[in-house]
């Protein structure tokens, strides 16, 4: 498999093409994945999430710069929303990372959500896997930042960084309460703006509530609350410190491999659902559906009948 062999050697065009195949559900993509799986598992996947305007892309750009100084090879998956009406998207996160455009050790991929809820795209997992196989040891995944329901990143990433900003109303930040339960690093970006103290207090209170709700464990990870001005790269080295520290903590506790494993398991279930859904569409008996439509059959009986039909089809192979 030419593409697989090339991408594990770090060939950029090959890696990019594999990502396209996976995006397209081209079967060659699946072949690449099974060919390169032995080269994966080493990358530290870091999610960046937070409300719109928190400066996630600018922070990502500063983190890339710092990580490069520490000789990490950095992969970036930048997710932007697709239009729910047309499916189109304008993906502009690269703009803020333009200074890394010519660094061969930085690979940036922009993806649209394409109807996927949860702040990620369907192919984000696959894209991370390919980046991992290409030897990018630090992978930043920047989520959409629509303001809610971005919990998906937690299932994907080893480390979730929550990016906030001063002065945003409590009600907006409180939407992130769900994420606060799980975020491992909190960064208040744009810390030179007014309202920093108030915002820090707000986050401290939430972290305190979270700590008191969890059972005491001597080796538990304590989420650091950091401040940064990403445009000037202030405080961003400390964020990379925290990311690396969390990586070490995960490995020391066996959590690193466990999280990768849980992620793979979840992804397998996603693929299974995907395929079952395709099978259902293929094998749903049109006569049964017509009967439901004509109100000759109730929906519960119809579902039973359709499932029986699917079982029969699967038995026949």
């Amino acid at each position: 498999m030419e593409v697989a062999a090339a991408l594990v050697k770090g060939n950029v065009a090959a890696g990019a093409r594999a990502m396209r195949w996976l995006d397209d559900r081209d079967p060659r993509g699946a072949d690449v994945v099974s060919a390169v799986i032995g080269h994966t598992g080493g990358a530290h996947v870091v999610g960046l999430t937070g409300p719109p305007g928190a400066g996630k892309s600018t922070l990502a750009s500063a983190l890339i710069a710092e990580a490069r100084r520490r000789e990490h090879r950095v992969g970036v998956v930048a997710v932007d929303p697709s239009s729910p009406f047309t499916g189109g998207a304008i993906l502009g996160d690269r703009v803020r990372m333009a200074r890394h455009a010519l660094d061969p050790d930085v690979f940036i991929r922009s993806v649209g959500t394409r109807g996927q809820a949860g702040g990620l795209s369907r192919s984000t997992h696959d894209t991370c896997l390919i980046l991992d196989a290409m030897g990018y040891d630090l992978i930043l995944v920047e989520t959409v930042g629509v303001g809610q329901d971005e919990i998906e990143i937690v299932a994907l990433a080893h480390t979730t960084v929550i990016v906030g900003l001063p002065g945003l109303g409590d009600e907006v930040q409180a939407v992130k309460a769900g994420l606060m339960e799980v975020g491992e690093i909190i960064v208040i970006n744009k810390a030179d703006r007014e309202g920093l103290d108030h915002t820090l207090q707000h986050y401290e209170t939430m972290l305190h509530l979270r700590a008191s709700a969890q059972p005491d464990a001597p080796d538990a990870w304590t989420p650091p609350l950091l401040t940064a001005v990403a445009t000037r790269e202030e405080g961003t080295a400390a964020v990379v410190d925290a990311i690396e520290a969390h990586g070490r903590w995960l490995r020391a506790n066996g959590e690193f491999a466990a999280r990768s494993g849980r992620r793979a398991r979840a992804q397998a279930m996603v693929l299974l659902r995907d395929r079952l859904s395709t099978l259902l569409d293929q094998h749903a008996d049109p006569q049964v559906l017509a009967a439901v439509e004509a109100r000759e059959l109730d929906v519960y009986s119809a579902a039973d009948a359709l499932l029986a039909g699917l079982r029969e089809a699967l038995r026949r192979g």
Binding site: S82, S83, T86, G87, G88, A89, I90, L91, G92, R94, V95, A98, A101, L102, S110, G112
Partner: peptide, 20 residues
């Protein structure tokens, strides 16, 4: 217009060089 037509537009910004 391309977004409206259902395409994914990746914008790389201003002041780009051919290499970028």
């Amino acid at each position: 217009a391309l977004r409206e037509a259902g395409m994914e537009v990746i914008f790389t910004g201003l002041k780009q060089t051919p290499a970028m």
